[in-house]
Design a protein around this nucleic acid. Structure first.
Lengths: 230, 230
DNA sequence: TCGACCTAGCTTGCATACAAGTCCTGTCCT
DNA sequence: AGGACAGGACTTGTATGCAAGCTAGGTCGA
């Protein structure tokens, strides 16, 4: 059974969906109970997430969802600008299949914005960039951007964000249009503007709340072993 | 004591220095004996390296240094082109301290090429790109490029490479000159050409040898607990 | 002679037990 | 009353033990 990366993915998904906020403590035993496994596998999952910069361990004190500092936040956005700009400028065309995939994502994105909760919205908005990386056809860059968008998503949760989901969706649509038209320099320019807008929407001097409990945030329904990995 | 990432770093250093070739099996118990720890910590180290794409596990068969396929090799070089181009183009200036650091590295690089073995040479050549990322001042991009250059170093080991260390050093020197002159577009162009040259020097249709033993490759001197982490 | 099978020895996968450090709380002394 | 201190309940860190699966080599049968 696709049991391999279940725990990593479940935790990451919970974080990205906003169910686990930055600073939340992630107890090994607690997570083990939730997933019905021993601490060993939980530790493995947490350590993988640690090398990806999603969680951090405070020796003998606990595991926590990372709380990026203002400087780290800026670095994350800059990294995304660098990678996504380079990515778009390296593209020579847009494969029809990938174009269709992106277009399908855009309609899903719109539906989520209208009807979904804030978590699904943020998640969907971030997925656009990952799908775009997939369209460029480089799995390594997909992974890199996956972790980078995870980081900026975390930042948006931690700091006061005035980002309008609708505005982001409009940006995405415009970027896609430029890509489909084959105007990659324009798409890159739009992308930089888009990321700038999201970053400017943050107030890096004001930090948000920091609650501290796990609750049943990781499992949405009753059974502890049922998870949707998006 | 800086005991934290000792094992990860030691293994990675051994791989990057060419002492552990792609395809080498990394037995948990064997590594545990070498480092004087139990399998637990070895597993943690290997799993961290796995998420960084350096080693891979074949269920119940063993851990191995990754052997990138021809396609993966191309992807790694493309990713480096994307990231390093974006990185250089995002730079607005070269901090004097970082400039001095890079210059110092270049002379060390030259010395290594004249007097060092092939492992030190490859290592030193790769470090230039990491130091360059450090000069850009973004820790995230440093980490990304560290793993990316590790991958391409692995590729160069696996496939027949006609790369001349001297030529690479000359490229690096030219790139540094352009950076110092503030001509970042030119530096980016030179960088693309440089990575292209390295990639073109590979014969992706011919794979190299694949020995299969650990020997005392991980420890250079007698005592199992003495390691230099570069 | 060749092929199927079976077993022994290896590997990792996972759980559990114990060690060691941190934090909080209650108590005792001043 | 206030502060130092001690103890216990928690946490992660590390080792070890057992289970499960892969591989290779030998044996038996056709």
């Amino acid at each position: 059974m696709a049991n391999e990366g279940r725990i990593d993915e479940a935790i990451l998904e919970a974080i990205l969906a906003g169910r686990l906020e930055p600073g939340t403590r992630l107890g090994e035993v607690r997570l083990g109970e939730i997933f019905g496994v021993s601490r060993t596998r939980v530790r493995e999952a947490l350590m993988k997430l640690e090398t990806r910069g999603i969680v951090r361990v405070n020796s003998r004190r606990g595991w926590f969802v990372v709380e990026p500092s203002a400087e780290e936040a800026r670095a994350a956005f800059q990294a995304r600008r660098v990678v996504e700009t380079g990515l778009i400028l390296s593209m020579r065309g847009l494969d029809p299949a990938h174009a269709a995939h992106l277009r399908a994502h855009l309609v899903e994105e719109e539906q989520t914005i209208v009807g979904g909760d804030v978590g699904s919205r943020t998640c969907s908005l971030g997925d656009f960039h990952i799908h775009l990386a997939e369209a460029a056809g480089n799995p390594l860059l997909v992974d890199i951007l996956r972790d980078l968008t995870a980081r900026t998503t975390l930042v948006s949760m931690l700091y006061q964000s005035t980002e309008e989901a609708a505005a982001s969706h409009a940006d995405h649509t415009a970027i896609f249009a430029a890509l489909e038209a084959g105007d990659f320099p324009e798409a890159a320019r739009l992308m930089v503007g888009h990321i700038d807008d999201v970053e400017d929407g943050l107030d890096l001097s004001v930090r948000r709340i920091r609650p501290d409990d796990l609750r049943a945030l990781l499992v949405t329904d009753g059974a502890p072993s049922r998870h949707r990995l998006s």
